[in-house]
């Protein structure tokens, strides 16, 4: 038994509490959600969050792509047994679209927001969202292509910002 106190809300001290650094490197629908859900859980627990979107992960915060992420039905070992799509059939036209449609439905049933809404929610929750400068140069993207509230950042700057943080690479 413990009386309620500020100290019991772990990491709730916004200045001296925990900090989580999340690196999102994949842009498929199934791989976009884990870093978003973990970032949100961290913010809900009062933990500071710094998110770095690099390589294909950039799609998650790219305005034109964030709402259209798809599930890969070929070369994705998780297609079986949840979706029950054997790899060979997964190569058929429309399979990826169908699986993505199914997954969006499941996500909605759990009341998880679609990716664009999720990113806005995280920014509103105070998570810092960064696009990897090098990946952006490679994909010919500029700040204008990224979602509002995000910042372009180099990998070394990200290292500076996340000093002392716990790091999670997805």
């Amino acid at each position: 038994m413990a009386k309620p106190s500020r100290a019991l809300h772990q990491g709730s001290d916004e200045t001296g509490g925990r900090k989580l650094a999340l690196i999102a490197s994949k842009g498929s629908l199934d791989m976009a959600y884990p870093p978003l859900i973990l970032a949100n859980a961290a913010r809900m627990s009062g933990i500071e969050v710094e998110m770095f979107f690099t390589f294909w992960g950039l799609d998650i915060i790219t305005k034109k792509k964030m709402g259209k992420l798809n599930v890969a039905t070929v070369g994705n070992p998780n297609m079986h047994p949840w979706f029950g799509i054997p790899t060979l059939l997964g190569a058929l036209p429309g399979m990826s679209a169908a699986a993505s449609w199914m997954m969006r439905g499941e996500i909605k049933k759990l009341d998880f927001p679609p990716v664009p809404e999720f990113i806005k929610l995280l920014i509103d929750a105070g998570a810092n969202v960064y696009g990897c400068k090098m990946s952006m140069d490679m994909m010919k993207l500029t700040q204008d292509d990224l979602v509002e509230g995000s910042t372009v950042l180099g990998a070394m700057e990200f290292m500076d910002i996340t000093e002392g943080a716990q790091i999670l690479f997805v």
Binding site: H9, G11, S12, D13, M44, G46
Partner: peptide
């Protein structure tokens, strides 16, 4: 509710 709105 700074520092964990749902919990607080």
């Amino acid at each position: 509710f700074p520092g964990g709105p749902a919990k607080i």
